[in-house]
Simulated assay, not measured.
Amino acid sequence: MEATVDFLEGKIKRMNDNTAVAVTTSDAVEFKMKSILKNMDEAAMATDDLKTRVTHMEGRHVSFSVQYRRNGNTESLKKETTLKFNHVYFNGGSGYDTTTGIFTVPVSGVYYFIFFIEGLQKKDDCVLADVHLYVDSWVVTVVYTGQHQNCKLMQASNAYINNLSKGQEVRLMTGTSCDEYTIVSYSTSFSGFLLD
C-alpha cells in the first residue's frame, strides 16, 4: 500500500508540476498575445495615418503647360478676349480647358503661373501686347509692351503665385488699351502648377 501511496503522490507531484508549467506557458502566451495585439493596433494606426496621407496627396499633382498655335504665324484678337491655348504639352489634373481657355483649380493650394506673350504691332497707334491674368473676375497681373518705332515684334512675360481655392478660374485675356491685338503663334505660352 505504501508503494501505491508513493506512486499516487508522484503522479500528483507530476500533475502539479505540469499544471505549473501549463500556467507559466499560458502566462507567456497571454503576454505574447497582448504584445501581438499591441503591434496590430500600432500597425492599424500607422495604416490609417498612411491612408490619410495618401488621400491628402491624391489629386495633388496638378500642372499644365499650353502653347498658342494657329494656322498662320499670328492671330488678331479683339480687346477683352480670352486667349485659348490650343496646343497642350501637359495637363495633369485636367484643369486647363482648351475650348474655353480657362484653368479651373481642381485642388485648393498654392499655385504658380507664368506666361509669355509675343505681340506684333500692325498699327503705329497701338501697343504690341496687353494681356491680363485673371483669377475669377479680378486682374491680378499684366504684361504690357508699349509702342515702339523701330520694333514691330516684342515679347513680355510675367508670373503670379497665390493660394487658390478649388473651383476658382484662371485665364489670360487681352487688355483694353487697343481694339485689336495681334498675338504671335508658338512663342506665346501659359503654364501653371500646384506648389503645395
Rank of each mutant, 00 (worst) to 15 (best):
V66F: 01
N18K: 11
F193G: 06
D125R: 00
E58A: 12
T47E: 09
T98I: 15
F85G: 02
N39R: 12
D17S: 14
I117V: 13
L172Y: 01
Q67M: 12
H132F: 01
L50A: 15
S35W: 04
T176V: 15
A22P: 00
F64S: 00
K84L: 04
N162K: 11
N18D: 15
H87C: 03
D196R: 11
G93D: 00
G92W: 09
K32C: 02
K32N: 09
G59M: 06
E58V: 13
D41Y: 07
F193E: 02
M15R: 06
K122Y: 02
M1V: 09
G92N: 15
L37G: 03
K34F: 03
M15E: 07
S191E: 15
E42P: 00
S63I: 05
V170I: 15
G167N: 07
T145L: 09
S35F: 06
S187I: 08
M33Q: 10
S94W: 05
F193I: 08
K38I: 06
E42M: 11
L128F: 01
T145K: 15
Y111H: 06
V21P: 00
D27P: 00
Y96H: 05
N86I: 03
A156P: 03
M1D: 07
Q149H: 11
T4R: 09
L77A: 05
I12N: 07
Q168S: 14
D124W: 01
I36S: 05
V142L: 05
N150M: 13
T141L: 01
L37S: 12
M33T: 13
T182V: 14
C178L: 11
T188K: 02
S165C: 11
N158K: 03
N18R: 11
V140Q: 07
P106L: 05
K122W: 00
G101Q: 08
H148E: 13
D17W: 07
A46Q: 11
G10D: 14
L50Q: 07
A44Q: 14
T141V: 11
T145N: 15
I36V: 13
A28W: 00
V5H: 08
Y68E: 02
A20E: 14
E2W: 02
E42Y: 08
S191W: 05
S137D: 12
V62W: 04
F90R: 10
M40T: 15
V127D: 10
N162W: 04
M40V: 15
G167A: 09
T104E: 11
I117W: 00
I12H: 05
K13E: 13
G10P: 03
I183H: 03
Y134L: 11
V5M: 11
Q147D: 03
